[in-house]
Design a protein around this nucleic acid. Sequence first.
DNA 1: TTTATTTACTACAACGTTTTCGTTAATTTT
DNA 2: AAAATTAACGAAAACGTTGTAGTAAATAAA
Lengths: 336, 336
Amino acid sequence: MNLKQLAAALGLSISSVSKALRNSHEISAVTKERVLAKAAELNYEANPFASSLRKQKSKTIAVVIPEVANNFFALAINGIESIAQEKGYHVLIYLTHDDAKKEIAITKLLQNGRVDGIMMSLSGQTSDTKHLEELKEKKIPLVFFDRVAENIDAPKITTDDYNSGIKATQHLIDQGCKRIAFLSISHNLSISNKRMNGYTEALKQNGQPQSNNIVIPCNGNEEMNIKLIEKLLRRKNRPDGIFAAVEKLAIHSYDICNKLKLKIPRDVKIIGFSNLHTASLLNPSLTTITQPAYEIGREAASILFKLVEKRGFNFLLEKTVLKAELIVRDSTRIKR
Amino acid sequence: MNLKQLAAALGLSISSVSKALRNSHEISAVTKERVLAKAAELNYEANPFASSLRKQKSKTIAVVIPEVANNFFALAINGIESIAQEKGYHVLIYLTHDDAKKEIAITKLLQNGRVDGIMMSLSGQTSDTKHLEELKEKKIPLVFFDRVAENIDAPKITTDDYNSGIKATQHLIDQGCKRIAFLSISHNLSISNKRMNGYTEALKQNGQPQSNNIVIPCNGNEEMNIKLIEKLLRRKNRPDGIFAAVEKLAIHSYDICNKLKLKIPRDVKIIGFSNLHTASLLNPSLTTITQPAYEIGREAASILFKLVEKRGFNFLLEKTVLKAELIVRDSTRIKR
DNA sequence: TTTATTTACTACAACGTTTTCGTTAATTTT
DNA sequence: AAAATTAACGAAAACGTTGTAGTAAATAAA
């Protein structure tokens, strides 16, 4: 069922039917009625590829993220999808699994007009950003969220990672921690670095010497991370507080504490960035810095659509910073 | 950069270049080389809409699921995406949020050739399946996974829900439970019904009268579900075992036990279908029936691509049943 | 009444591919 | 050497839309 057949069934020209369907003023009201009725009757739906080809618009956006089995990204997708559905857009999803090569391959796929815009959260392995600059050169609207590329000129939606880093670290200090370790992810990621800077700053503010900083450079490799954390907790002067830059590292820390028979929070207090909805049910419940993931998704999508719909407007390059929340639970509670 | 420009740059006709790019035997080896080189140099990528329009193929599939902030679906997407990436397909994602109306609206969107195939897990509110029949009528390849529509003729990938239901219930019985409640979701969903049938069967096998069955009909509304579960646990002869058809209901049960100061597993033992990766870290750790979500996604995607690529082959209507695993943890452990 | 203007429609040329069908020239077969 | 085949390319017609540029008839303005 295409325009041609529909037009034939109506005894009208193809162009008239097309115009009637998009409610052009060139078509009389009665004819529009007839066309709409017939289209509904024959279950006509415009071919999206013909439309896209002709209009040079795909009504589709891409979401490129490291993974989906992660509450933060899942919630962000929820937010993105809600806006996309409102606006009548379609959402393509691509997973990098924190692999820079995949990220590059994916951006290649998106250079030929398949999508009207891209929302992206960088892979932890991404250091070279040539592929992102290519997207900018091709004028494809691009918005970063959470794991942003600082050196690329594009809107960025994040949380206040630096302040949250301070808040988390200060909280551990307030709970009596003397030796606090920071579990970082990829030094390529600004979120990791900002959270770390917050950590460093909080220690400094509390008069701790730089030499007290313990930064564990975790990365994409799970097994390696687990080993690093285990090694950390086996040190003779092991930390009494852990600040995990990311949910997974907090979970690993729990596992290893269990393995090593270390009691949380008695032996080690743990805080982590996390959107785990079972944080309160963990044993012990996990103190978290929780990001407004859903809102981040919605905000990022809104901005992307503004870019998409008002092309040429490049005034939307500002950063949007949303507030993350410290939720204190048992994993950092002082045992009475 | 399009074929025309590329052809001009090469001094060849459009059709020759097109053929060279798809490695046609009509083009000499030397010319092919030249074309490939130039295409790479000029960074040529075929316009996907023109190709799709011409070939009547979109190289895109749709994944329609209730939600993404759920480990089962997130892992399934991982599986789907991994196969799609191998095959060079793109993945559109649509969330129904367990709303039948949204599901219907989404299927409408997918009827016009936008996708070559659809993978679907039904919303819990879906009772009428007319919209699914329409997809079948339009000959759009369709594969169900997990939350399948029994009455629609399409490949279905599930886990052995009935047997898992028996296993879960038997486990509770073995752990000494005398009054076991089943928290169902939507009576429209065959997975819920099958799990319930397993529950019923296990009770029967253990000589319990039908009147001992306690089935709580939960549904999409969270607050309502929480109230139902709370009411259940406030009964004077409250159950000493809960079998949750779905992860979220198990989590709610934990919350309510906390609220009512009921000790798990002492007062109530809890088991649930779940892919929660923190199940072992909960307080107490949660006994689960865990589905091979990633494999389900991969299997469903593989079958879909077979349907897509060998159109007309309708022999692939069989059901695929994968095994779910009972993982015993503390929430059902007999206290010594 | 003649000339503008508006109304309601149609023809047709894109959009960028792919593919069928020609068309030469070169090669092979008789 | 003539005929038949093959190799390598090009012209042109789709695919299904949309928008521009007509074109009649009807209405309004002169």
